[in-house]
Computed example of a mutant assay.
Amino acid sequence: MLTGRRTWDHIGPMSNVAAIILAAGRGTRFGQDPKLLARLAERPLVQHVADAALGSLADPVIVVTGHQAAAVEEVLAGLPVHIVRNAAFMDGLSTSLKTGFAALPSEAQAAVVLLGDMPLVKTSLIDTLVLEWQRMGAPMALVPTIDGRRGNPVVLSRDLAGQIEQLSGDSGAGPILRGRSDVLEYPVDDPAILQDVDTRADFGRVSREPHQS
């Protein structure tokens, strides 16, 4: 489902890197209310992530929905995103990553993978990772780090598609990235790469942080 029209007015040519937003999880640690619909500065968490991606070099922006799919898709209505539903979302995060990769257009050589519960990630960070991935010669993956800790979003080469298809359970790409010489790290000075919202306490902390895209 593609809605709206995308315009480019702040940055140069489009990249060959798509964006995949993983927004299918149940978020059980957050409580009964849908986590991704919690409102931060009058916008749902997932919309913050979508807006940041839509303002970036990444194109297209693919959103993988699952739990409360209709409600999540409703808050994204009118945005120029491509929505794909993950019917197997109950089987864990790996299924959403596989669903997103399967939806990549043929011209996409990589995808920057964002989590729908990380509203502090900014357009500028996404652009930096896309451009650095290209500058570094399109490694198998580019992972941001802060103080030696790996975070998100990550840029994953399309060449990983076969290995991603073999993932299972509630893990992302981490298991196939560990110990590889063709996975590069990129140090950043941005704590947003570690700030996801799992609990109400996490939501309270991000609510006190700057959150504009």
Rank of each mutant, 00 (worst) to 15 (best):
E73Y: 10
P175L: 05
I146T: 06
V49Q: 00
I176K: 01
V75H: 08
D91H: 15
R6Q: 11
T145E: 03
L114N: 00
T95C: 11
A138N: 15
H211Q: 15
S106L: 06
A77D: 15
D170M: 07
G116E: 04
R158T: 13
E209G: 07
P175W: 06
S15N: 09
M118H: 03
A18Q: 05
V49F: 00
R6E: 14
G55M: 01
A53K: 06
M140N: 12
G78T: 15
Y186C: 10
Q212N: 14
V113C: 04
F30V: 00
G172M: 03
T99A: 11
Q47R: 15
T145V: 15
E185M: 00
G25M: 12
V49K: 02
T95I: 01
P144N: 00
S15G: 03
P153N: 08
A102M: 06
D159H: 07
L114M: 10
Q32K: 13
R135N: 14
H211E: 12
I11D: 12
M136A: 11
F101S: 05
A111W: 05
V154K: 07
I20D: 03
R208V: 08
A138G: 13
G25N: 12
V49C: 04
A87S: 08
R135A: 15
P34H: 04
T145L: 03
L167T: 06
A161N: 07
A58H: 08
H48W: 07
R178C: 01
M118D: 00
R180D: 00
R43P: 02
I20T: 00
T128E: 11
R205K: 12
V197P: 07
H211A: 15
G92Q: 05
Q134W: 14
L184W: 05
V130N: 04
S106H: 11
R200C: 00
R5H: 09
R208P: 00
A77N: 08
G92S: 01
A23I: 09
G27D: 09
T199R: 01
W133R: 01
I21N: 03
P44N: 08
V81E: 09
L104F: 04
I21Q: 04
R149A: 11
A71I: 05
R43H: 05
G179P: 03
L115K: 07
S96V: 05
V143C: 01
A173P: 12
G66C: 01
L79S: 11
G137L: 06
A24W: 01
